[in-house]
Design a binder for these strands. Sequence first.
DNA 1: GCCGTTTTCGGCCCGACTGTTTTCAGTCG
Length: 576
Amino acid sequence: MSKYNRELAKIFSDMAAIYELQGNGDEYRARAYENAARAIDNLPEDVSEIMEEEEKLEDIRNIGESIADKVREYIKTGKIEKYEELKKTIPEDFVDLLEIEGVGPETLKTLQKELNIKTKEDLVEALESGEVEEIKGFGEKTVQNILDGIAQRESAGDRILLADAVEIAGEIVENLKEACDLDEIEVVGSIRRRRTTIGDIDILVTAKESEREKIMDHFTDMDIVKKVVAKGKKKSTVQTKAEDRDVDLRIFEEGEFGAAMLYFTGSKAHNVHLRKMAQEKDWKINEYGLFSGDKKLAGKTEESIYSRLGLPWIPPEMREDNGEIEAAEKDELPDLVSFDDIHGDLHMHSTWSDGNNSIEELVEFVRENFDYDYIVITDHSKSQTQAGGLDEDELGEQYEEIEKLNDKIGSDFIKKGVEVDILPDGSLDLSDDFLKECDWVVASVHRRMNQDNTDRILSAMDNPYVNAIGHPFGRLIGKRQGYSLDFEKILDKASETGTALEINAQPARMDLEVRRVRAAIDAGVMLVIGTDTHNLGSFINMRFGVGHARRGWATADDILNTRKWKEVQKFVEQKR
DNA sequence: GCCGTTTTCGGCCCGACTGTTTTCAGTCG
């Protein structure tokens, strides 16, 4: 599946690093390999599929003849000769050393030349023995910074979940708002683009000249700060105690704020593309504005810059240079789904199985905090014994309670659903006679996660009472990769049978992943966003689910739970 | 190594901050 893409992206980014380390004036070759790695990583389909369908690899931007040949070589033989050769030119694990904050190619080259550093162990030893400090251009602080960088890499995971990053960023924003006189403040970077995982946190503010020093002082003195990495008038960077995150704060003038937002929201690839467009008109974009020579053409808002480039404003979630600029040029940007479009939540658990809250508490909370028309209670089925799964009789009792509660609130707000287990042989954990009484059935795999589960899920979709497949790949970010699926077959079956696929909005799931969301939409498959709530605090994950869907270019039409219940019912009935 | 509505050759984003330097190279985003 996506195996080739991941492997090739890693190989090409390694090759880029090696060329950079060799430094034979090949820095642009290195950049080309970096661009190619990113291009492949972002592909919605697998490179092997592109080859089968006689499409040309060379049509992918940043993949030319030479790299396309290497892709073909890899798929045919399982390796790339040039890569094997390159690896021999540098010590093993050398590429990993580049990941240390503060260590770039020039530093590494010098260290290798002067001290014959080959591994992280060599490096630590040389740093601690004082040898490094003796080298011209190095000093006490540089040595300490590299040691800190190594320590940070060991203690912090690479990236944290979006929801966790949003929480940290939110605290900082509130703190700054309270203590300082700010005009505007925005969280930008990959948080604004709603990536699933986050590396650094970027925050922008505008404020009066006279306030700036105070703002930076406050920012670097906050309780949550573990270390001040850099501090200046326009830019400071701190590391947080929680999660070891780097947080950047940058201060701009009011008239620059749009340009700064654009610049620091990224992605890098999106910005580079915009800059090239500007260059073609002999203009220049930087974080302060769009310029023609010294003359500023735009900069106060993002819209003003896009507009001067002849483009409509592009939503942050789309800014990955995955075709959004081309779509914008043709005025064909999709009208992305928004949180306000959502009419209900189709996946949640109560105390009847492994949820923390009674149905009554769930209902009360949702009616107070969300503008939904319906929620579906989908507790686990009987084979999920560890989660208190329910059999047909118990679910029948639960449905009686739901009817009573609906009577009490005088509407049909609560729907009768179930998350039925897909058993290892592809059959379901509840009888068809029971399932046909349900308003909504989501079917999920919870056991035997380490095998190909394509056939299992295909046969579940053949059941006329299964309306959606829950967390289709079973991944848990940072813990479990998820099982393999022939996604093409899943999509075919989904559209043939009228079964929806879930975007499970738990921050550690976000399953389907973005490129599959986009592939499903292209295939005309219906999607649902479900929070899979087990406690009241999780309902808010719908916002992240919507952000995730937007990254996959979803419109409201592509998401079933943007519709009124009558329409959802139609979807259910059509399959039966 | 990639790319091209000026180019098949000659470009390839650009500014802030740090540390070690006396004017700048390296790193980062």
